[in-house]
Design a protein around this nucleic acid. Structure first.
Length: 423
RNA sequence: GGAGAGGUGGGUGAGUGGCUGAAACCAACAGUUUGCUAAACUGUCGUAGGGGUAACCCUACCGGGGGUUCGAAUCCCCCCCUCUCCGCCA
């Protein structure tokens, strides 16, 4: 969430900037400041009352020791009164704090100055395009037909054993999945990321820290019996590795990567968006996460975009990079670049990676800090990106590389697949 | 799942009702000494909230939450976690 001190010091600016995200914060922020003032006032009275109470307790102790029992007994009356006051003040403080938090978590992160105004994906800035869009034969098939033709993915089987959106990969299809995961992880490790294998279920506190709760509750699968959530992305467990930590400045940047299955309910999606591999309830993804010094985070964001561009280049896929507009950005992000590959048979761009700088939005929630030069604790910046999400990559690979001779596998994957063409 | 033991600051670990936010040691940081390194010595050394122009002061926190008491790291209750043994099991 946005830091309280920022809201206090730059109130008007915060309201103004949130407008870029099409969020009218004026009313909430007024209320936050009001509650904040009340809260602080209450805190002061409570502290003062406790201070008096503590002093009395010490005095009474001293009196008992010196044998002045009567005097001590007298003073106890005052203590009883203070005790009542403390209890009342504590209740008020608790209410105010809860209210303030409830309001604060409703505020999306402040967008970076470079974020364009806009409502939807159509208003995103395409900042880069590269690669040749392949010219396909007239009877080219979309990936779901290719998957069937070459017996790579059995959508019906997945539907039968689980439900729609849970495909079963088979034969060379399964091998291609494993190849991509291996390729992505090896590349990330080579780029200096530490590989992790995270839990696929997380507790409430973790889901809250990265911003999935309280907001996007309906997007996650929830195991009620144990109150655990299936992760929608490895970002959640991996970023939470560092929850409540104070890092040393020389440890920054912390670079982590993990492969995981990802689970998303995707409530409300329909139509051509969910056809084939376009949108699934379970999919595979390799994620990269960085924790950086605040001064470096935007350089890092650029590095991450370059890194993912390199992966797409090696996969020989035409891609473009979009700077998301305020309306298309996620709640927690300050600046996001989407990477999209061209899916030639569907003739549309598919998002395969989303790379974001969250600045202190997540670290503030999860108290992820480092110690600065002067010894003070400073909130770190967190960033993450897909590198990469598999299904749409597979879709594009199948569609773009199809020919009468079969589906060609890009060279970079050969060591991982062991075959160069799917026939 | 059953039985027992235990959870204290970055680490080890004292502390069973009253200046204990917490001894001591280690680690870390700064300085002195030193040709350099090491050693030795001196000092600093938790986090958060609040008040004050400031020096500084107050408050909370010893796994989490309640309770007893004038006063709780210390006593009581509930929960969580870790370890050991047994059972079960990929």
């Amino acid at each position: 969430m946005i830091e309280m001190q920022v809201i206090r010091a730059q109130t008007a600016d915060v309201v103004e900037r949130l407008k870029v995200k099409n969020f009218d914060a004026a009313e909430i922020i007024d209320r936050i400041l009001e509650v904040d003032g009340e809260r602080r006032k209450t805190q002061k009275s409570l502290d003062d009352t406790l201070a008096e109470s503590n002093q009395l307790a010490r005095d009474i102790g001293a009196l008992f020791k010196s044998g002045k029992r009567d005097e001590a007994e007298q003073m106890k009356e005052r203590t009883a009164l203070l005790k009542q006051q403390v209890k009342a003040l504590q209740e008020i403080l608790e209410t105010l704090t809860a209210e303030q938090d409830k309001l604060l978590v409703q505020l999306p992160n402040l967008p970076h100055a470079s974020v364009p105004q806009g409502k939807s994906a159509e208003d995103n800035d395409i900042v880069h395009s590269e690669g040749e869009v392949p010219v396909l034969v007239p009877d080219a098939m979309p990936h779901w037909e290719l998957a069937k033709k070459y017996d790579l993915i059995d959508f019906e089987c997945g539907t039968r054993i689980t439900g729609a959106g849970f495909p079963v990969y088979k034969g060379k299809g399964a091998r291609l999945q494993r190849a991509l995961i291996g390729f992505f992880l090896d590349s990330a490790v080579e780029a200096g990321y530490t590989e992790y294998q995270p839990p696929l279920l997380v507790n409430e506190a973790s889901a809250y820290a990265t911003g999935q709760l309280p907001d996007k509750e309906g997007q996650m699968y929830h195991v009620q019996l144990d109150n655990l959530y299936l992760i929608p992305t490895a970002e959640v467990p991996v970023t939470n590795f560092f929850r409540d930590m104070i890092l040393r400045q020389e440890d920054l940047p912390v670079k982590s990567t993990a492969y995981s299955a990802c689970f998303r309910r995707e409530a409300g999606s329909y139509g051509k968006d969910v056809r084939g591999l376009n949108r699934l309830h379970q999919f595979d993804k390799v994620e990269v996460v960085q924790i950086t010094h605040p001064d470096k985070s935007y350089d890092t964001l650029e590095d991450m975009v370059k890194y993912v561009s390199g992966l797409l280049r090696k996969l020989e896929l035409p891609f473009r990079i979009a700077r998301l507009c305020g309306g298309d950005m996620s709640f927690a992000s300050a600046l996001t670049f989407d990477m999209e590959v061209y899916s030639a048979a569907q003739q549309r761009w598919l998002e395969v990676s989303s790379i974001s700088n969250f600045e202190t939005f997540q670290s503030n929630r999860m108290k992820l800090r480092f110690r600065g030069e002067d010894g003070k604790t400073i909130l770190a910046h967190t960033l993450n990106g897909s590198a990469l999400a598999l299904p749409r990559i597979v879709a594009a690979l199948l569609e773009n590389n199809q020919s009468p001779e079969g589906i060609r596998i890009p060279k970079a994957l050969l060591p991982y697949t062991g075959f160069e063409v799917i026939v």
